[in-house]
Design a binder for these strands. Structure first.
Lengths: 345, 345
DNA sequence: CTGAAAGCGCTAACAG
DNA sequence: CTGTTAGCGCTTTCAG
């Protein structure tokens, strides 16, 4: 059994009291240099490390923050996590990641698991399935700091970090229009996700601005956000089989974009450039894909950083915060013939 | 400030002692049904949740395991993490992920951070830069359970989970040979990583088995394992500019594979099928890449699962374990014209 | 059946 | 300058 050395061991070995040892280790001014040296040297020698759990219990905080995303095996989220981690570690916090796999039940369990006082705050991106927010609301009401990013909840009084989804969608759709496409379908994410209506709106506005009709049948939803490939394939198939077959698709997310390409490759192997694609994606191999696609990239790393800074500020503030900000960053559009981005952050 | 309810609050509210409440909550046989009901109902009503930190302090364990990988934004590792998470959560453990970014210093800091009694065990995949293992050795000697996966340390007495790297490399190289290539270069990972000599060996053996000469110049190392794109690009450039220019490349890892393709696309835009590629990769969009490549896939999810099961077994064993196993799984080869894998696990 | 008290490792008044 | 004591939330003897 792992039995780490404690302050008591040092005290006993040196014939001092635990409080003296504690103070010496924290370099307190009320301890003689001589004793400090003695204690420090001995602690060093036996590789003493304070027990963070005891500290947490005393200080009533764990210096850890929980992150809940749908999955880490997704470029957007893994980049966001890199951003989260970079500021968390810099400020002395651990990061505990958990995945909802876009399932409501998993989300509830994980949130419960993380909460219970084992994290000081939560960074949340909603699962695609979730429509009931009481599990989060309750914890938030009890005082657990939370910051939402990417997939947010509209009426939740806390900080949020998102991108301008409407604008990103508008630009992607407009690009397709400018390339000469007129029958543009939209492969959409789960309907109740915050990002879904925003992106739909941008898509619609771009059509309207360029005098193209909006055809509701052209919008196909994927309720599992691409987590189930078959669902994406079915949606793509519906699009391909429409009487008035689209000549382009605007795709609403990373996983949907790759799923869509896979499906197109399956249904249309000889004729990949039959349909143009523009979609949200943070993949770092997007430039290597075939058929080549235009894509909207979100500043995932920065989003993670900002959300974490906000959360830590919330955690470390001693007066209750009533004013919440909603940071909205811009996306970046990469037409499919643009030079490749060589490095993902 | 977040102030969760404690057992004391319940005791006070109900006019009981804390020990009675504690026992009632754990459904102890020595508490009357009536009292139990009273306590349970009230606890439910105020959403009482035991403080896991206090529990950890008492039980001297945290029910959390630390994972250290180079980065999560890498298909192999994010899939492995999914496997880790799936068994960890099932057995009631939290997973704390940290990334070394293939830098020695980060690895040391993170391992220290995780250890110190805040995790019950460690799941480790070495950083590409690390050559000194004392930070891990010491913790292990002090009794912290550890399991290595993928990138292991040869002389470290603990459980390990790897794939048959030599065989995977052999098969990939052989495939290139069977396709008619005779001048096969090898884009290799950092030299001191365990997987590097193994994969090099498989490459060499395949050449030899088919009567091809081994040309040491054909082996180009990337000391940062692809984390720095420029390094990969330079290596690819050296390969392309060789007097006896190779007609194929066997690439040793995920990040190198995509980096290699990006570089080829840059140097050779018109002539992508000039050089055939076969490489290790767990990307789920590999079938969409252009130029298309053959790839060796590792059972990342299973590796994560097995490693975690072993670790938890180590943690929960009360007698010290002296016999360690080295699980070696098989890789799977996908020729570049094979039907696509539709779902990543 | 229930309560009082000790202790997990650490810090922080409070005394000397 | 150093020691004693109490307490963070919880479980667990040990006493009733």
């Amino acid at each position: 059994m792992y039995k780490p050395t404690t302050i008591k061991d040092i005290a006993k070995a040196l014939g001092l009291s635990t409080s003296t040892v504690s103070r010496a280790l924290r370099d307190s001014f009320e301890i003689s240099e001589e004793t400090k040296r003695l204690v420090m040297d001995y602690a060093e020698k036996i590789h003493y490390k304070p027990n963070p759990i005891a500290l947490s219990l005393k200080e009533r905080r764990s210096y850890s923050i929980g992150v809940i995303v749908c999955e880490v095996a997704n470029s957007f989220f893994s980049q966001a996590i890199n951003g989260i981690e970079s500021v968390a570690y810099k400020k002395g916090y651990h990061v505990i990641i958990s995945q909802s796999h876009d399932a409501y039940e998993r989300e509830v369990i994980n949130v419960q698991h993380l909460a219970n006082r084992s994290v000081d705050g939560l960074l949340v991106s909603m699962s695609a399935e979730t429509t009931d927010f009481t599990h989060l609301k309750r914890l938030h009401d009890e005082g657990l700091p939370m910051v939402f990013f990417d997939r947010v909840i509209a009426d939740f009084k806390t900080h949020k970090v998102t991108v301008n989804n409407k604008k990103g969608a508008y630009e992607a759709t407009e690009l397709l229009i400018k390339e000469g496409h007129t029958k543009i379908a939209h492969l959409a994410n789960a309907p109740h996700l915050s990002i879904t209506p925003d992106r739909l709106e941008g898509y619609k506005e771009a059509l309207q601005a360029h005098g193209l009709p909006f055809n509701p049948n052209y919008v196909q939803y994927c309720h599992h956000g691409g987590m189930i490939y078959e669902e994406v394939e079915a949606a793509v198939q519906r699009i391909l089989q429409m009487p008035d077959k689209p000549d382009a698709i605007f795709v609403a997310s990373d996983r949907l974009s790759t799923g869509c390409l896979t499906a197109l490759k399956k249904f249309n192997p000889g004729n990949l450039h039959d349909i143009a694609i523009a979609g949200f994606s943070n993949s770092d191999v997007i430039n290597l894909l075939q058929p080549s696609i235009s894509y909207v990239r979100q500043p995932a790393y920065e989003m993670g950083q900002i959300a974490t800074e906000m959360l830590i500020q919330l955690i470390e503030s001693n007066k209750p915060i009533k004013e919440f900000s909603n940071v909205v960053l811009d996306t970046q559009l990469f037409p499919h013939n643009a030079p490749p981005v060589l490095k993902a952050s």
